[in-house]
Design a protein around this nucleic acid. Sequence first.
DNA 1: GCTTGACCCTGACGCGACGTCAGGCTGTTG
DNA 2: CAACAGCCTGACGTCGCGTCAGGGTCAAGC
Lengths: 254, 254
Amino acid sequence: MNGGMSVGDTAALAGVTVRTLHHYDRIGLLSPSGRTAAGYRQYAPADLERLHQVLLYRELGFPLEEVATLLDDASADPAEHLRRQHRLLRDRLERTQAMVAAVEKEMEARAMGISLTPEERFEVFGDWLPEEYAAEAEEKWGGTDAWAQSQQRTRAMTKEDWLRVKAEGDDVERRFAGALAAGVAPASEQAMDLAEEHRQQISRNFYDCSPEMHAGLGRMYVEDERFTAYYERIAPGLAQYVSTAVQANAARQG
Amino acid sequence: MNGGMSVGDTAALAGVTVRTLHHYDRIGLLSPSGRTAAGYRQYAPADLERLHQVLLYRELGFPLEEVATLLDDASADPAEHLRRQHRLLRDRLERTQAMVAAVEKEMEARAMGISLTPEERFEVFGDWLPEEYAAEAEEKWGGTDAWAQSQQRTRAMTKEDWLRVKAEGDDVERRFAGALAAGVAPASEQAMDLAEEHRQQISRNFYDCSPEMHAGLGRMYVEDERFTAYYERIAPGLAQYVSTAVQANAARQG
DNA sequence: GCTTGACCCTGACGCGACGTCAGGCTGTTG
DNA sequence: CAACAGCCTGACGTCGCGTCAGGGTCAAGC
């Protein structure tokens, strides 16, 4: 008795199926260190520890065979595994953040009627080799009206909703422009209140936009020329103005 | 001419293989909107846009069939897809952050010679149902020495390295205790310098530890009783002291 | 003591999402 | 006009399991 956990308990604990543990046993990735007289698998603490490592590496995308060589490499102590896992997880974190940022950028672009290039859209999917295909694609159907057309179709949202959302956005933009014209400082309470309204509008109509995320958008308004152009067409200096107000507002929230 | 991109160009642009595009065509997930007289696939802008959606949903773990139903659902406009993708990506971000934190906790625990329970280790792998298995496992081999044993073996790092690292850690801890005894305020420059040394020690020996991450560790020292106990055994009040110093140090860096 | 029902075992086949040839057509370039 | 890169359609292989099928095990309750 007390020779370890059954395969079912182990599976439940680790959040995998019994079949998965059978599989890992068969391919020699994780064989329980004991069996009962009747042939029941018995998982000891050390087995669970190994299972944990296996699941981590699996989650990180390693094929099981490679996981086995990693874990069986006697020259790699546990601390090294932890360091590697840590590094890989932080890479993944960055990548996910980039994807979140890309989706937010796309939303913002849609709201403004700006269309992003396909290169930009795919940028976030790793291993990117720019120049080459950028030029190629641009040449093939870069400046045509195909984009404008495919743009038109994609924008649905029930026209009514869209018009309401657009009106809301225009309203805040006009009030920003008014504040700018009246000489109200972009870091003033009044401008920050407008920024806050802008943020809550995004949250209502598009996605839950935290102050930090909003600050990121603010930066983009002056860093990406197309977003800058959008605001500059409303009023000269408005891009910088909104950007500053938004970031100031984010700062006061924290 | 100019009827769209070839399958090769498209694959390169999107960072997938030609075979993948063939597959998507065959299963009807993404059929290029045109073909040349010779039967060559021609991908139009709208096709690329769809491909982008497909890859995003795929990355998020959806089976291709489900991706198809999602994208073919006429009642779901593009904005809704963006919102959903945003939500899913943020979930994933949170999950990854939790895993990073778990790995850091494990490293910290190892450095202190504390062993975490298997429940804690698996906690981070979603869909967690606590109570039940917690009790079960605890009963089966909770307090035995099995853990201690499996602990011993896992700690390799070449004994020499480990001793050096341990000595370094002990040194800083002793100096923290000394500062506490001498009545040096935990938010004082002297204590913060010690905290900074602590942080750099972690960075050298374990993983790159940013000030924010370090602040997180500091919080843990008072929130998790085992980490608290570790420090309290060195000197009463030391857990809170180190925690405060570490967080103060993190604050001054930012 | 015997049955019931939950849990365990080992095959063995199936499946999703492609990878990887094979055998043959296309089309641009020197 | 030959060569070579690129495209086509089968068709089989692979990885990581899911899903039966057919049969043993074991604590619980009658």
